[in-house]
Every structure is written in C-alpha cells, then in structure tokens.
Amino acid sequence: MSRPVLAGQVALVTGAGWGDGGIGRTIAHGLAELGAKVLVSDVAPTAQQTADWIAADVAGAETAAHCGDLSDEDVVASLVGQALDKWGRLDILVNNAGGGIIRPFLDHTPDTLRETIDRNLWTAVWCTYYALPHMVSARYGRIVNIGADSVRNGLWDHAGYNAAKGGVHGMTTGLAREFADSDITVNTVAPCAVNTERMRGRQAYDGSMAEKFTSVIPKGRPAELKEIASMATHLCKPESGFVTGQVISVNGGSTML
C-alpha cells in the first residue's frame, strides 16, 4: 500500500468550525485523507466538532482543535505553539478564516469595516507571520489563502470585503517571491459564490441577492465545497512545488484570464 502523499506532515486550517460555511472543514478533511495531521481553528468552539468528525471519518487521522479570534496576535502565537507542542512541526497553513459583511459600501459603519478587515486580512497576516519562521527553518512549506473572485469582478456590495481580500491577494505575491528559495509556496484560491450553509441562508432570506451573485457565473450555479477544497489541497502537495504566487480562481468562469 502506498504511503499517503502528506504522511508525516502537519497542517493548520483556520476558519474550520462546524457551522462556518464548510470550506475550511472540507479542506481539513481532504488534508487528513492525504495523510496530514490536522489542527483546525475557529473563533467558535465548533472547531472541536470538526476535529472529532475528521478523526471518526478518516482512518488513522490525527486531529486537534483550537478556539480563538485569529485577528489577535497573541491568540495566533498560541495556536502555532499548539501545533508545535503537539507534533513538533508545521508544514501547511490554510488561511481560510474570514466571512464577509456584505453590504453597499456606504451602509457600512466604521465598526463593520474594521470587523471585515480583521476577519479576512489580519487573520491571514498573523497566521502567516507566526507560521513562516518554522517553515523557513525546515526549508519547506505550503501556504494557501482563501481569497475572493469578487476582487477581480467587482461584484455588487463587496467593496469593503474586497479591501480585505485584495490585501490577501497582494500578500500572496510578495511572500511567494520572498520565500521561494526556502521551498515555501504561497498561493491563493479565489472562489466565487459557494454553496455553503451561509449562501443557502442568504437565498432563503433574500433570493434576489443570491440570484444576483450567481448571475455573473457562466456555469449558472455556485461552486460546491469539494470543488474549492480540491484545488486548495492540491496546492498543499509536494508535487505543487513549482506553483507559487498565483491567485487561482475557482469560479465557474465568472472571470477569465
């Protein structure tokens, strides 16, 4: 029997709580299937539920959970320390934590704009800042950010959200060049609308808004969770070592080239 491609590696996936959309937990599950030991984190305590589900569903999986606000530098330091204390290494970071406050720009308040930036940009900045030294020391790492296709297509009501996700996209290219010689790749997966619990809730609450968000997608539907997760997990593999600094849209054609 062949050895799983990520056997012995340790992955940290943020925003992977049970009730937070599902992208993070689907990615975490996929990494465990590839043999990685997985630490899942979320601002909600449902991260433990995700860890338990993966451990029960994937034979031989090793998992752990963390709960905390990753826009807080000290919380992130503790999170990365947990991975190192438990497994002694950190090979993979998936910056999925986020969640948009989606509204017309002038309907935002200073508080909602700060929250949007905190959730989507500072979480990725701090997690990357604390994970990178360990990857540099090991001379190996895979960082995958979850960005947003709305940065490219100017989707309605997304300007505040795009300010944060655009920062993630920009950080991707800068870090990719800076750390390429340490065999650390940095890429972003940029989804369009995704068929999550949150998206289905938006459909139930305001069908016209959900329809507007999917109207720009030539495939005529939101992405499924596994369609996003499969790209993210692929970028975590050793064989993806020559792909770096890329923002890869998984978007049903809503932007092209």
Rank of each mutant, 00 (worst) to 15 (best):
P4D: 04
L6V: 01
G8L: 08
Q9T: 14
Q9V: 05
L12V: 11
G15Q: 05
G19C: 12
I23K: 00
R25K: 15
A32S: 13
G35K: 00
V40C: 03
D42A: 11
D42E: 07
T46R: 08
Q48A: 15
D52T: 09
D52V: 09
W53G: 09
I54A: 05
V58C: 13
V58G: 13
V58E: 12
A61Q: 07
T63Q: 05
A64Q: 00
C67R: 15
G68F: 03
S71C: 10
D74T: 14
V75S: 12
V75E: 11
V76D: 02
V80P: 01
G81R: 13
K86Q: 15
W87E: 06
G88P: 14
G88C: 04
G88H: 14
R89C: 12
R89L: 10
L93E: 06
L93I: 03
V94F: 00
N95H: 02
G99R: 04
I101E: 00
I101S: 01
R103Q: 14
R103E: 14
F105P: 04
L106Y: 11
L106G: 08
H108P: 06
T109C: 07
T112M: 08
E115F: 03
E115W: 13
I117M: 14
I117R: 07
D118N: 15
R119F: 10
N120C: 12
L121K: 11
L121D: 08
L121W: 09
W122G: 01
W122T: 10
A131E: 08
V136H: 07
V136T: 13
R139A: 14
R142G: 00
N145Q: 13
I146C: 14
G147T: 02
V151C: 13
D157V: 05
D157P: 00
D157Y: 12
H158P: 01
G160V: 06
G166M: 07
G167E: 04
G170M: 06
T172I: 05
T172S: 04
G174F: 09
G174Q: 15
G174M: 13
R177M: 11
F179Q: 02
A180Q: 12
I184P: 00
I184Q: 01
I184F: 07
V186H: 05
N187Q: 02
V189F: 07
A190M: 07
P191R: 00
C192Q: 06
C192K: 05
C192M: 06
A193Y: 03
N195A: 11
M199P: 06
A204L: 15
D206N: 15
G207F: 05
S208L: 07
A210Y: 06
A210P: 03
A210Q: 03
F213E: 14
V216F: 10
I217K: 10
P218M: 04
G220F: 08
G220K: 13
G220Y: 09
A223Q: 03
A229T: 05
A229R: 01
S230K: 05
A232R: 02
T233K: 04
L235E: 07
E239G: 09
T244V: 11
T244K: 10
Q246T: 12
Q246V: 09
Q246M: 03
S249H: 09
V250A: 07
G252P: 02
S254N: 09
T255P: 00
M256D: 04
